[in-house]
């Protein structure tokens, strides 16, 4: 892992510079080069257009259509797919539901529409809390693994294991641990219904998620650490910097690019989290993420679910873009200074 991600971070930085340099002389390429590039990239582009482009555009289109409704005279469903304007979006964002006898009303509790904002806040909450905890613990792990000591490779493997096991399997494991008659209550001597109340249920999901994905962050940070030359530390020592200053002034700034990649990846992961809360709580007790809401809606209304996943898409896109710009600004500043 470390071998792979280290060059990636460097290449990314190098790539940015190269692209700038190249941009001025694109016209200088031989036309044969261009055709060759087209042949090489073509298949990939077509594949992407088919498996990514088409579904995305189709889903966005469908999100503006009606879902099948019941024809009262026959008792059968009509086809739906009529133009519905932004009603599907209003259903989620403004929580408008169709009322009996036409018109709309505020969505009653128990309708999935009324659960949209709760799900958004729950998802954002999970993202902020888990990413912060994971970065702190991941940093500690990385610093530890970076030291030379006996059995270091053993520690590295041990840290990696949770990350290597599929989430659904891990989630089942935590179900056993958090069961009222389960491991955790036996160890603590309590009889706590972990997954039946909002607070503990959320805590359970944060604990399970942190346990699983901290290794990922730790390894990315470790890759960053290994790219820092020991000479920098030595000269800092000579200048009289103490351990804290060395961490704060040297390690942290230099490891930032790797850290940025880790944070962005994790944030995107948590924002679309589905499997862990689904297995642990089925989204009950204040743990319903947006992805769970999408899948629940999908059971009966495809087009409305398409609207919700488009909203999710835009939301995640905006957050990702904000994170990229935030970190990028720093990385670029430092690189050009």
């Amino acid at each position: 892992m470390s071998i792979v991600s280290e060059p990636i971070a460097e290449n990314a930085a190098r790539g940015r510079k190269n692209r700038r340099k190249r941009s001025g002389r694109n016209g200088g390429l031989h036309s044969g080069d261009g055709r060759m590039a087209l042949y090489l990239l073509g298949p990939t582009m077509i594949m992407l257009a088919l498996i990514v482009g088409y579904p995305v555009l189709n889903a966005i289109y469908k999100s503006f259509l009606t879902d099948p409704g019941l024809d009262d005279s026959t008792g059968l469903f009509n086809e739906g797919n009529d133009w519905n304007g932004t009603a599907n979006y209003a259903h989620w964002i403004l929580q408008r539901c169709n009322a009996v006898g036409g018109g709309t009303e505020s969505c009653p509790a128990g309708n999935l529409g009324s659960q949209f904002w709760d799900s958004v806040w729950v998802t954002l909450g999970f993202t902020v809390v888990t990413v912060i905890i994971e970065v702190i613990i991941g940093m500690l792990f990385a610093l530890m693994m970076h030291q030379a000591f006996r059995g270091r490779s053993l520690v590295r493997v041990a840290v990696l294991i949770p990350w290597a096991v599929p989430t659904a399997v891990i989630a089942k494991l935590w179900v056993v641990i958090f069961d009222p008659q389960g491991v955790l209550n036996n160890v603590l001597g309590t009889s706590f219904a972990w997954t039946s109340e909002a607070g503990p249920a959320r805590m359970a999901i944060v604990i399970a998620d942190v346990w699983k994905t901290t290794p990922f962050i730790a390894l990315l940070i470790l890759a960053g650490l290994q790219g820092i030359s020991s000479e920098v530390y030595e000269s800092a020592k000579v200048d009289g910097a103490n351990a804290w200053q060395r961490f704060w002034r040297i390690t942290l700034p230099l490891v930032k690019p790797a850290l940025a990649v880790a944070v962005i990846f994790r944030a995107l992961d948590v924002l679309r989290m589905y499997d862990l809360p689904w297995v642990l709580t089925q989204g009950s007790n204040g743990t319903q993420t947006i992805s769970i809401l999408v899948v629940k809606e999908l059971a009966s209304k495809l087009n409305s679910a398409a609207a919700l996943s488009t909203i999710t898409f835009v939301l995640i896109f905006a957050i990702a873009l904000a994170l990229v710009r935030l970190f990028n600004a720093n990385i670029v500043d430092r690189g050009t200074r």
């Binding site: 990514v52 579904p55 995305v56 889903a59 398409a306 995640i316 896109f317």
Partner: peptide, 21 residues
Amino acid sequence: LAGVLSSVLVLSACGGGSDSD
């Protein structure tokens, strides 16, 4: 980013059209 994120949407496009004719 759009490419990565759009996997979120792929899910919703699997259903296809419904029919009752």
